[in-house]
């Protein structure tokens, strides 16, 4: 049975269910349950639910130590940018230890953080920096775009035997959606087709999925059938679903809230060029944020972001351009 829940409640539900299911799941971080009058504390005690100082390096490093000692910590980091304070733990410790031990240890942990909070939070709290975590072998990256996925990807992240950056989108936290009750898992590395169409493939993540679907709706009125794909996890990436769609449509628009240089859309574009070139009827088009730190003031903030109009415009462009010789 599904019922409507906001995205943020769906995440908490997943953590709660996993903690009830598995005693080794711990939950801690800054401002996690400072008061004892908290659902997690009441259900799971202070041993498993802790509030921690603003010490990101220690918070994440401890999670690695807990994981090596047999636990599955979920660390609340609030903002993706706060992980940058502890880059060594995120990039150089957690994802490397399994391989360097010859597979003899594993580091199952979840780094839970929000991103993309373009709501007037200026330059240090609004970034879409998931691309920074995608190039790290051993580190998985999940980007839920719906309330159901928010629940299912969190449960999968907790059960995964590897470090996972679970990056929720701050603009989606109050969005409601149907969420299955009880145990619900969304597999990693399995993209979902949010809307089917035969003329053009749009790949989008997180908050931009909604923008892409809105653009697809507008385009439908113009007789253009857009297919919208949400990869849901960037590492692992379901390249097969994207390539199958490109084979059908021959035209691609890739949407990414990150800035263009080193955007994750670059990686998808390279994959299509590598394995799907002969299907293409037009150059691959990327709609990313513009190349700037996000400014505080609203007109400037809106200007740099991908939006419905930019996506629709890019689709019209790939449909209008001359075919590329295969």
């Amino acid at each position: 049975m599904a019922r409507e829940l906001p995205y943020i409640a769906a995440i908490n539900e997943a953590i709660h269910l996993e903690m009830a299911r598995d005693d080794t799941v711990l939950f801690y971080g800054q401002d996690v349950a400072p008061s004892d009058d908290d659902d997690f504390v009441k259900a799971f005690s202070r041993d498993r639910v802790r509030v921690s100082p603003i010490s990101e390096t220690a918070e994440i490093g401890m999670a690695v130590g807990l994981a090596l000692a047999g636990y599955r910590p979920v660390v609340e980091l609030l903002m993706a940018e706060f992980m940058l304070v502890a880059m060594n733990q995120v990039v150089n410790e957690a994802p490397r230890l399994h391989l360097m031990s010859g597979g003899r240890v594993k580091v199952p942990l979840v780094l839970k953080a929000g991103y993309g909070f373009t709501a007037g939070w200026a330059g240090q709290h609004t970034g879409s920096i998931y691309n920074m975590f995608c190039g790290i072998p051993g580190l998985k990256v999940a980007l839920p775009s719906t309330a159901a996925d928010a629940k299912g990807l969190m449960a999968t992240a907790i059960r995964d035997d590897n470090p996972v950056c679970y990056l929720l989108h701050y603009l989606l936290v109050l969005e409601h959606g149907d969420v299955p009750e009880g145990e619900y898992l969304v597999p990693f590395g399995k993209a979902v087709v949010r809307r089917e169409g035969g003329d053009v493939t749009i790949v989008a993540t997180g908050w931009t999925v909604g923008r892409a679907l809105a653009a697809a709706e507008t385009l439908a009125g113009e007789g253009i059938a857009a297919e919208v794909i949400d990869p849901r996890t960037l590492n692992p990436l379901d390249t097969a679903t994207i390539l199958a769609s490109v084979e059908k449509t021959g035209r691609v628009v890739l949407v990414d809230q990150g800035t263009p240089h080193g955007a994750f859309s670059n990686v998808i574009a390279a994959g299509i060029a590598d394995q799907g070139f002969s299907s293409l009827k037009a150059p691959v088009k990327q709609v990313t944020a513009l190349d700037a730190t996000v400014a505080y003031s609203e007109p400037m903030e809106a200007y740099v972001l991908p939006n419905e109009e930019k996506i629709a415009g890019a689709v019209r462009q790939v449909l209008g351009s001359a075919p590329v010789a295969a």
């Binding site: 200026a122 505080y296 003031s297 609203e298």
Partner: peptide, 16 residues
């Protein structure tokens, strides 16, 4: 208030 004539041109806001 995010204005062009703000101390930092509206780029930084309250925190910066």
């Amino acid at each position: 208030y995010g204005r062009k004539d703000g101390l930092c041109g509206g780029y930084g806001g309250s925190m910066h």
